[in-house]
Amino acid sequence: MVDFQYKDSYDVNDLVEIVRILRSPGGCPWDAEQTHESIRRDFLEEAYEAVEAIDEGSTEHLKEELGDVLLQVALHARMEEEQGSFDLNGVADGVCKKLIYRHPHVFGDVAVSGTGEVLTNWEALKRKEKHQATHTDALNSVARSLPALWRAEKVQKKAKKAGFDWPDVSGAVDKLSEELSEFKAAVAENSNVEEELGDLLFSAVNAARFVKVDPEAALQKATEKFIARFRRVEELAGDRPMEDMDLAELDKLWEQAKHQA
């Protein structure tokens, strides 16, 4: 039995202590074996589950999932503490200093007219802080671990700050049509298909940005719509297995499902 004080209510300091015990000799063998790399995916999954709780509007679920995210932070910080690098307090110190630095209109004497100016100042301070001397440096700073649609959108927004953008949505739509034609040609020739598909998706994100649609959310909704219609097709098929039907029959059922939605 480990030396641990049980309580009716715990705080962040208790979490730090529990994680320390779990990774110490006599603690949990699994926790002790983990590395930054081994739980990298866990971190991403917990963050997505927290977002799902936000989408659900469930306060209790959100509290639980934020706890799981906090656990991931505590675990990574503990790993670094064991190496003598930094601990959770060091993480908090860093983000506190960052917030103070990037809010001179709150913690300093800078005056702002509104949210737009706040965001402009934030970006300028961030570039200075990250030593981003060029616009390309800013584009390269966008995390490659982001979902591809979101990363493309962020890169495009940073390019816009350099003046590299169409004046309105028509340019983005025309480019999308152009990329679709190039993708069709690539498929027909069976050449550069992946590259041309990437260009098409990148252009679709650009069009989404102009009409103020989150491309990730739009694709998620399209996927949910597909699942709902697919379910209806399967229901309409009745006792016949879908795999025994030809495409023409399935298309007919799909059109029925589409008009019933």
Rank of each mutant, 00 (worst) to 15 (best):
R40A: 01
R127I: 09
A92F: 11
L44R: 11
I54K: 08
G171V: 11
A77H: 07
K130P: 06
E46Q: 08
A162H: 15
D109I: 12
Q34Y: 01
I39D: 02
V155C: 07
L119E: 14
R151L: 04
H135C: 03
I100R: 13
S170R: 13
A162V: 14
D174F: 15
A47E: 12
K175Y: 01
Q132M: 02
H76R: 15
A162Q: 14
R144C: 01
K175W: 00
V73H: 02
E129C: 02
K126P: 00
R41H: 02
C96Q: 14
M79Y: 07
A74C: 10
L71Y: 06
T136E: 10
A143F: 00
V110P: 01
Y101P: 10
A111Y: 10
V112G: 00
E82C: 07
H61S: 12
D174L: 12
E178A: 07
D165I: 11
A172V: 09
E80I: 09
Y48S: 12
S145K: 04
L139H: 03
H105G: 00
A92T: 12
N89Q: 12
Y48V: 06
R144A: 01
K130C: 03
L70G: 09
V142M: 06
T134K: 05
G67S: 14
D174N: 15
G94H: 14
G171N: 10
F43D: 00
G171D: 13
E33Q: 11
V51R: 13
D137F: 05
S141K: 07
L70A: 10
E49K: 12
M79N: 08
V51H: 09
G90I: 02
E123W: 03
E49P: 07
V155M: 10
S113M: 05
P167V: 13
K97A: 11
A53P: 04
S145R: 04
E80S: 11
R127K: 05
I100D: 15
V91Q: 04
E64G: 08
K97W: 15
R151E: 07
A47Q: 07
I100K: 14
K128V: 02
G67E: 15
H36F: 08
L149R: 04
L75Y: 01
A172C: 08
Q83W: 04
G57F: 13
V155W: 06
R144G: 09
D109F: 02
V69S: 05
E153G: 05
E82D: 10
T134C: 00
V69I: 15
R78A: 09
V110W: 00
S177P: 08
V69T: 08
A133Y: 13
E123P: 00
A47L: 12
L75M: 09
S58V: 15
A148Q: 12
D174A: 13
V112C: 03
E52T: 02
R78I: 09
R41C: 03
